[in-house]
């Protein structure tokens, strides 16, 4: 007796499941798409943002005259920083943008503009 009833009940349930599945499948697809994040997409820094942050770093140095700070200003000739101070400026930039600048590149950075130029070339800066 029970066996006679069972097939109908499973049939009913199966159809119910099917119905639900049909209704919920679009929602499921969109959910799956939401979970697929594009990790590889680089954020990219806006140039104006980089410029502002580099100039802020310079402003943080007591030796630097705030009025003389500009993108074009040479660390040595215009801002009066010696080579040791320049090393510290470059290190502060490394810290700010979470990058490591190799020695030979660090020696090339002699103005805020060159620093901005270098950072915009580095994809891992943020």
């Amino acid at each position: 007796m029970f066996r006679a009833i069972r097939p109908t009940s499973t049939l009913y349930r199966a159809s119910a499941l099917y119905k639900n599945a049909a209704v919920s499948s679009p929602a499921r697809v969109s959910m799956a798409m939401n979970f697929a994040r594009m990790y590889s997409a680089g954020a990219g820094l806006a140039r104006s943002d980089v410029e502002k942050r580099v100039l802020d770093i310079l402003a943080g140095f007591n030796k630097v005259d705030a009025k003389k700070i500009s993108l074009k200003a040479n660390f040595n000739a215009d801002l009066g920083l010696d080579s040791l101070d320049t090393v510290e400026v470059v290190m502060a930039i490394e810290e700010e943008f979470s990058i490591e600048i190799p020695d030979k590149d660090a020696d090339e950075i002699k103005s805020a503009e060159q620093a901005v130029e270098y950072i915009s070339k580095r994809d891992d800066a943020h």
Binding site: S83, L84, V87, E88, V90, M91, D103, A106, D107
Partner: peptide, 9 residues
């Protein structure tokens, strides 16, 4: 300068 950099680092 390289020595200074790595010492500070």
């Amino acid at each position: 300068l390289a020595l200074y950099r790595s010492l500070l680092h």
